[in-house]
């Protein structure tokens, strides 16, 4: 494992922990898109179908369990927690799951490395992860009220994607036959979705003013 991959995984882990910590300690999920969190839970569930069958490393298994556990806990908090669920911006978080789910499923059925159930589900999770942040970005733009933790959550997620691209470039030059076209193209699209957010995030950081996205 190279340094970019490890740094990417750590920022990914940090993003999830920031969000869980925010929800758990201040008992509020305001500004957090339940739609995005449900999509991530589905991404992990479909990607790690073989978690107990295919063993890569202790590190991989533990990280997979953390991502599965944290994503489902976040969904549980927003939907079921007596206090947290009252802070959910239901009327603002109106993005339709189906608009993202259906195209990803169709694409996974058509473009995949092998037409098997496991492989199609894996490919579906890659496509879905690429666009799962959209409801969150729409919600941020709509409410325009971004608290620090939600801003950091999205920033860390974007950083994780950018680091994964560096990881692929590194692996391309250091390993033989390391070409995962599907992952790479979906990953680049996913990272590009953050470009706009990054721009405003750095602007607000540079000028030390509160992060606000233009309407």
């Amino acid at each position: 494992m190279n340094i970019f991959r490890l740094a990417g995984d750590m920022t990914h882990l940090a993003s999830v922990l920031v969000l869980l910590l925010k929800i758990h300690t201040i008992k509020s999920c305001s500004g957090v898109s339940l739609k995005t969190q449900e999509l991530y839970a589905l991404v992990f569930a479909t990607r790690y179908l073989d978690i107990f069958v295919t063993y890569v490393s202790f590190y991989n298994t533990v990280m997979k369990l953390i991502f599965l556990g944290s994503s489902f806990s976040i969904v549980w908090y927003i939907r079921r927690h007596r206090v947290v669920r009252r802070s959910y911006d239901k009327d603002q978080d109106t993005f339709r799951h189906l608009f993202l789910l259906l195209p990803c499923l169709v694409l996974a059925l058509v473009i995949n490395e092998k037409f098997t159930f496991k492989e199609v589900m894996w490919t579906f999770s890659i496509y879905l992860e690429a666009v799962a942040i959209l409801p969150q970005l729409v919600l941020l733009q709509r409410t325009r009220n971004i608290d620090n933790l939600t801003g950091q959550y999205v920033f860390l997620l974007g950083a994780y994607r950018a680091l994964y691209i560096l990881n692929w470039i590194y692996r391309y030059f250091t390993e033989e036959h390391y070409v995962h076209w599907i992952t790479w193209i979906a990953g680049i699209i996913q990272t590009l979705l953050y470009a706009d957010f990054f721009y405003y995030y750095f602007q607000s950081w540079k000028n030390s003013v509160k992060l606000e996205l233009p309407a």
Partner: peptide, 10 residues
């Protein structure tokens, strides 16, 4: 045909 690389990422 080249064997696809292992899925060892998260």
């Amino acid at each position: 045909d080249v064997e696809p690389p292992p899925k060892d990422e998260l």
